[in-house]
Amino acid sequence: MCSGRVDLEFILRAFANGMDGVFIGGCRLGECNYITHGNYHALNMALLCKKIMEHIGLNPDRLRVEFMSAGDGILFSEVADEFSGQIRALGPLGSTEGLSLDELKQRIQEVSKLVPYIKIAKGEKLALRPAKGDYDQFYTLDEIEELLNEVISYYIDPEKCQACMTCAKRCPAEAIIGGKNLIHVIDQDKCIRCGTCFEACPPRFSAVKKFTGEPVPPPIPEGKRTIVRKGKEKEGTS
């Protein structure tokens, strides 16, 4: 397993659990044990995570990523001592942030839900190798603000949905509720905002609507989802 396997979600989960600091250790940059140079991906992801942390009011110094070889035992112990000292100085989660633990956890959990969206939106940039010296500005706070303020949501227009099941079949998160003759509804809690439904909805229906940075309308009540087809007889005979 490579340090590139460390998922953005893992870090957020640790903080949400109340961990005061998270350390990621990888092989030395440029000395990949595989051929994938996944440690650069880990670095990139950690830089993104730090900015997200800053954005939500969580001290980014609580996350540290370092690269060293198996022969660097002494370096490792130094870094471990230094980092744990630093975390001790920062105090428990929330204390330097000036936020209550619950508030902080809530914010972390909110952003955790957006991990799939972040991976999609930042997919290309996440594959780049940050240049040394540019780490802090590789991602900017403005960029994160834009990313999180303009979260995309999808909504199925009940007027247009023909209950064809195409989107429901394609949805990777199984977030679309509906059946034959039942107007489809996106379960916003399950939705990962990948846009697969938007792409899949036949153009002649164009029922899936994209919303940027604003909430979607409430779903139509469960009792009113049965579809009323105008030309049903005609369809039936054809």
Binding site: C2, D7, T36, G38, H41, G123
Partner: peptide
């Protein structure tokens, strides 16, 4: 080769590294 980089890249959790799954690590 089981490095699992793809697993961390996947937005939907479709691709997973066996023996080091999200569930196991979480």
């Amino acid at each position: 080769k089981g490095d699992g980089l793809c697993n961390a890249k996947c937005p939907t959790g479709a691709i997973y590294l066996k023996h080091f799954t999200d569930e196991e690590l979480l």
